[in-house]
Simulated scan of single mutants.
Amino acid sequence: MSTTACAPASPNSYQLIIEGTELQAYVAPGETVLKAGLRSGVKIAHLCMVGECGSCRCRLLRGKVRLKKDISHHVDHDAMRNGYLLACQSELLSDVLLAVPGLSSDVQGPALVTRSGRIKSAISLNHNIRHLVLELDAPLTYEAGQYAQLSIPGHPALAQEARCYSFCSAPLGHPQIEVEFHVRLVPGGQFTEWLFAEDRIGECIELTGPLGDFTVHNVQRPMVLIAGGSGLAPIKSILEHLSAQQSAPDVTLFFAARTQDDLYCLSEIAKLQANWPAHSRMLFEPVLSNEPGDSDWRGLAGYCGEHISSFCSPADSSFYLCGPPPMIDSILRQIEGVVEPHYIHYDRFIDRSNMAQQ
Rank of each mutant, 00 (worst) to 15 (best):
T3A: 15
T4G: 03
A5E: 12
A7C: 01
A9F: 01
P11S: 10
L16A: 01
I17S: 13
I18M: 07
I18K: 09
L23N: 06
Q24F: 00
Y26P: 00
Y26A: 03
G30W: 01
V33C: 07
L34K: 11
K35F: 03
G37K: 02
R39I: 02
A45W: 00
L47S: 14
L47T: 01
C48N: 10
G51A: 09
G51W: 01
E52I: 01
R57Q: 12
L60G: 13
L60A: 09
L61W: 06
G63I: 00
R66L: 08
R66C: 05
L67M: 13
H77E: 14
D78E: 14
G83N: 05
G83S: 05
L85V: 12
C88F: 02
E91N: 02
S94Q: 06
D95S: 08
V96Y: 06
A99Q: 02
V100R: 07
G102V: 04
L103T: 03
L103Q: 12
D106K: 12
V107Y: 12
V113F: 01
G117I: 00
G117E: 01
L125P: 00
L125C: 15
L125V: 09
I129P: 02
R130E: 09
L132E: 04
V133L: 09
V133K: 13
P139R: 11
L140I: 11
L140G: 03
T141K: 10
Y142T: 05
E143T: 07
A144D: 05
P156F: 05
P156N: 02
E161N: 09
E161M: 07
A162S: 12
R163E: 08
R163Y: 14
C164M: 04
C164I: 04
S169R: 14
P171M: 05
G173T: 04
H174W: 08
H174C: 06
R184Q: 14
P187S: 10
G189D: 07
F196H: 07
A197H: 09
A197C: 04
R200Q: 15
I205V: 15
E206D: 05
P210L: 03
T215L: 07
H217V: 02
Q220Y: 02
R221S: 11
R221M: 08
V224S: 12
A227L: 08
G228F: 03
G228D: 04
G229E: 04
I235V: 15
E240F: 00
Q245I: 01
S247Q: 15
V251F: 10
V251T: 12
T252R: 08
A256N: 09
A257L: 03
Q260K: 11
Q260D: 02
Q260A: 15
Y264G: 09
Y264M: 02
N275H: 09
A278C: 08
R281T: 09
R281W: 11
E285I: 06
E285N: 14
G299D: 03
C304H: 04
H307I: 04
F319L: 14
Y320T: 04
L321R: 02
L321P: 05
P326R: 10
R333T: 04
E336N: 11
G337S: 04
H342D: 14
R348I: 02
R352M: 08
A356P: 00
